[in-house]
Design a protein around this nucleic acid. Sequence first.
DNA 1: GCCAACGTTGGC
DNA 2: GCCAACGTTGGC
Length: 156
Amino acid sequence: MRYWLLKSDPDTFSWQDLVASPRRTTRWDGVRNYQARNSLRDDVAVGDGVLFYHSQADRAVVGTATVTRAAYPDPTQFDRKSPQHDPGSDPGDPRWVAVDIRAEREFAHPVPLDQLRKTPGLAKMTLLQKGSRLSVQPVTSGEWEIICRLGGVATK
DNA sequence: GCCAACGTTGGC
DNA sequence: GCCAACGTTGGC
């Protein structure tokens, strides 16, 4: 099993939105970056652990989630009314994929970006590299344990 | 709100 | 195939 960090702008879709979703589960769609797409399509598997990160004003890891469905075509790419519509994607060979995730543990203490930067053992995190904008990032098991501990939840 | 960094587009 | 221009992301 692997671990991932998923970025979300809380003004668009927040942790609270995820928790309020039916079965605490949502479709993680709208990824429109090829590198992130490749991770979703090729490497993200059911049962993988997810660190849920708020970008923008919040900038903190706020909880954990579990992947409950592996990659499938992102329906929003074919929805002309969606801001995520991609007129260049061929329905016979969809360009973008989605996965499903379910909220697991809410952090008692959200872990802000500043704290991540200060924490020994996290310096190599993709999130902390200059210019890193990937919305789907791999996380090592060591990083996962450190961050869950900081967040106040036990690791499995 | 600003702007640096990044990915994508399109002219050549 | 190069690269300038553009739009977007996201930290500050």
